[in-house]
Amino acid sequence: MKETTIPVKTQSKQVPDTRDSSKTLRPPVDIFESPEGLTVIADLPGVHKEDVQIQVENDILTIKAVAKSQLTIDPTYREFELYPYFRQFQLSDKTDQEKIKAEMKNGVLIIHLPKKESAKPKQISVTVS
């Protein structure tokens, strides 16, 4: 008699990785809104432009960055340590994910999250007859 194994169908859940196992820093952010969209500003000192990763998956914005010290020797007096940065935000469905833009300057990351056209406020002119 031949032995057969029936493969069990397992459904992999589409849950994005919202945790990171390694030690990370949570960068402080400013988030403010304008009629055009949201702006996220994050302090990421020690991060070069190429070492920033910004992902959007399942409406979750992930900021990952690796900071590098400029010192080549170990400090004798230490007040801070640089670890990778990691922080995530839930995006609303009003965000136009195709048009997200980011820029990096002097260790500060600026992300522009524009709103969808349908979510923007519309001015309706009222004519008085």
Binding site: D43, P45, I73, K105, V108
Partner: peptide, 19 residues
């Protein structure tokens, strides 16, 4: 915040000051 390192000829001060 600063980290201070030292070698034979120099003292290095690294200050964390973004933006």
């Amino acid at each position: 915040l600063v980290n201070i390192a030292e070698d034979k000829d120099n003292v290095y001060v690294e200050a964390l000051a973004p933006g």
